[in-house]
């Protein structure tokens, strides 16, 4: 998988979208409405109760925006591709991928690179920027680098988890509902984790690393103490993404091997 091939794919994907540009922009508008709805409901909630576990509206907005922004980045490379894998395995279209001289995982995620997530990025990106200015933080170069790195890492965590779920379709044939479960569990990180007690924090730190997507980075940026990780390890947080992504990739390749019947 070369960069040249990736850019060629992106050019074709854009051209394809522009074939139905009316549709495309309608979908973007619809998603903007939908995600604005999500923000509004949290905003209404905080209008009433002022804070959740001591986190105020701009802080919650920051937390939620990092979650949504990294989801959009990660999902653009993985969600639809992984969700549709089940169907591709069933009707055999995946086979065509396996006779190409490319890495099947990289080709699949890039071939399906989804420009539609621009809506998520617009909504969450603007709220993110608003939240950062409203919070009146003191910015050092280190913090800016940290924020950028955690966003990349968060996107990689989301990709890694979605990839892992997608890979199960090689094994169980059906993976559809696991994606549904993913979104339900991901809802935990829309709120500050201390709300949910110790067990959930341990679960989302050590079992499914959702907490590394937004809770830990946001806590460190806002100088809030967390129960499980101290300030000294904050630079370990951005490592979680590459790790997760690699694990997901390995599992996916294991799944392909199983699909091919090469042991396992």
């Amino acid at each position: 998988m070369t960069l040249r091939l990736f850019w060629k794919l992106v050019r074709l994907l854009m051209k394809e979208r522009m074939e139905y540009r009316g549709d495309f922009f309608l979908a973007i508008a619809a998603q903007i409405i939908s995600y604005t709805g999500d923000y509004i409901i949290i905003w209404l909630f905080i209008q009433k109760f002022n804070h959740i576990a001591g986190w105020t509206w701009p802080e919650i907005a920051l937390l939620y925006s990092i979650s949504l922004f990294t989801y959009a980045l990660g999902a653009a490379f993985s969600f639809v591709q992984m969700r549709d894998l089940e169907g591709q395995v069933n009707n055999g279209t995946l086979d065509a991928l396996l006779v190409k001289p490319v890495n099947p995982y990289l080709y699949l995620i890039c071939r399906g690179f989804n420009l539609g997530y621009i809506a998520h990025l617009v909504v969450s990106g603007s709220v993110l920027i608003w939240a950062l200015t409203a919070l009146d933080l003191e910015w050092s170069a280190m913090q800016i680098i940290y924020l950028v790195l955690t966003i990349i890492s968060g996107a990689l965590i989301q990709t890694g988890i979605l990839t892992t779920i997608g890979a199960t379709s090689f094994i169980w044939v059906r993976s559809g509902f696991l994606f549904n479960l993913f979104f339900k569990i991901k809802d935990f990180i829309s709120y500050p984790l201390p709300v949910f007690g110790t067990f959930i924090q341990i679960l989302l730190t050590f079992v499914i690393p959702f907490a590394f997507i937004n809770y830990y980075p946001a806590s460190f940026l806002l100088s809030r103490d967390t129960m499980l990780l101290s300030d000294e390890v904050m630079w370990l947080v951005p490592l979680m993404g590459p790790l997760c992504c690699l694990a997901g990739y390995r599992f996916w390749m294991y799944g392909v091997n199983r699909y091919q019947g090469a042991g396992g």
């Binding site: 070369t2 040249r4 091939l5 060629k8 794919l9 074709l12 051209k15 394809e16 074939e19 139905y20 190409k100 001289p101 490319v102 080709y107």
Partner: peptide, 14 residues
């Protein structure tokens, strides 16, 4: 949704 030529073109890159 794209002209046939685009599919050929991509093949060249792959």
């Amino acid at each position: 949704d794209l002209p046939v030529m685009d599919s050929f073109d991509l093949h060249k890159y792959v």
